[in-house]
Amino acid sequence: MTRFRASAPASRRFPSRCSTSSSCGAGRSTASARASTSWPSSPISTSSCWSTRRPELLMRILLLLCNTAAFLALWCAGCATDAPEPYLPEDVGQTVEGPGLVSRGAHLYMKYCQPCHGAEGKGDGPAADVLDTPPRDLTAGQFKFRSTPMGSSPTAGDLYRVIALGVPGTEMPAWGDRLGEQEMWSIAAYVQTLEPGFGDEATRPKPEAVIDIPAPPELGADAVASGQKLFGQFGCTSCHGEDGRGGGPSAADLEDYTGRPIAPPDFSTGVYKSGPRPRDLYRTIATGVSGVPMPGYAGALKPDQIWQVVAYIRSLRQERGVFDYLLATDPGRL
């Protein structure tokens, strides 16, 4: 539809084809159309051409809005569901060998990881200041998600798993669907060279120390009830709260190893930073989380009891609507 200037002569106010076209339903002569037509009050013409096209335009806008809403709903739902699993090593040694593995990993690290983690792995990359979650300092030896005891360095398999799955709820993406297995092994091998503890015999991960994750027992309603009791009995509620939403009495005073205030996760979201699978939760409960006040319970709980706590935590998940994600004030806890 053409927009007209106020200085346009009367003969140019409306194109003659709109006045005489049968599709407009006018059926009038050009002269009679000009005589009976007044100057529109807005730049959009209110002629019958607009009347016939308006429903189609409104329908297109409605379909666009519906498609956008559907996309957002599916995307947000995917944030709290189990994603397709890439290849993930579970039982690997402390090293990964191969010709040129570290040098290739250094090249890939500078391409994909350096913008956040920095050229030297200190978490000071050019994008670090704009991220809600500070990037991990890979030289500090404080790797959160490990299959090794507290105070030990992670295995190459632990690093590979974090690279492949990312860290849900943070800006650390999952590279499992973007990089090949050899590329992720290369990055893992290079990251090990950044961590001084890996070269220290006292903290170097030993294959025999890697936690064994047994197959889960039946995790029904009884397991959930038992897990809830253990959750309170072993002090989990002091940080995570009675409802598992991270509002426990100690939550406001929590800090990481750098002194930065941190918040416990909200289990009702169904988003777990250690990974989407039940075994990822089991591993974190058993080994603890380095650099934060989350201890490991492998020596305090039996394997079946850890699985019961896993069952209870996963039972706390609540469905979230699209507006819960769009209006969240703390997206890192969603």
Rank of each mutant, 00 (worst) to 15 (best):
residue 169 G to M: 07
residue 174 A to M: 08
residue 181 E to W: 04
residue 181 E to I: 13
residue 182 Q to W: 14
residue 183 E to Y: 05
residue 185 W to S: 00
residue 187 I to E: 03
residue 187 I to W: 04
residue 190 Y to N: 08
residue 191 V to H: 05
residue 192 Q to W: 02
residue 195 E to V: 06
residue 195 E to R: 05
residue 199 G to N: 15
residue 204 R to V: 02
residue 205 P to H: 01
residue 205 P to C: 03
residue 205 P to Y: 02
residue 207 P to A: 14
residue 207 P to Q: 09
residue 208 E to V: 14
residue 208 E to F: 09
residue 209 A to K: 12
residue 209 A to E: 13
residue 209 A to C: 04
residue 211 I to C: 08
residue 213 I to Y: 11
residue 215 A to V: 09
residue 216 P to E: 05
residue 218 E to Q: 11
residue 221 A to V: 09
residue 221 A to E: 12
residue 223 A to R: 00
residue 225 A to T: 06
residue 225 A to M: 08
residue 226 S to W: 03
residue 233 Q to D: 15
residue 234 F to N: 12
residue 235 G to D: 01
residue 236 C to P: 08
residue 239 C to E: 00
residue 240 H to S: 07
residue 242 E to P: 00
residue 244 G to Q: 06
residue 244 G to W: 08
residue 245 R to E: 06
residue 247 G to N: 10
residue 247 G to S: 12
residue 249 P to D: 01
residue 250 S to W: 09
residue 251 A to P: 07
residue 251 A to G: 02
residue 251 A to M: 00
residue 252 A to Q: 15
residue 253 D to V: 12
residue 253 D to S: 15
residue 254 L to H: 04
residue 254 L to M: 14
residue 257 Y to C: 00
residue 257 Y to V: 03
residue 258 T to S: 09
residue 259 G to Y: 12
residue 261 P to D: 07
residue 262 I to Y: 10
residue 262 I to T: 14
residue 262 I to K: 08
residue 264 P to Y: 14
residue 265 P to M: 12
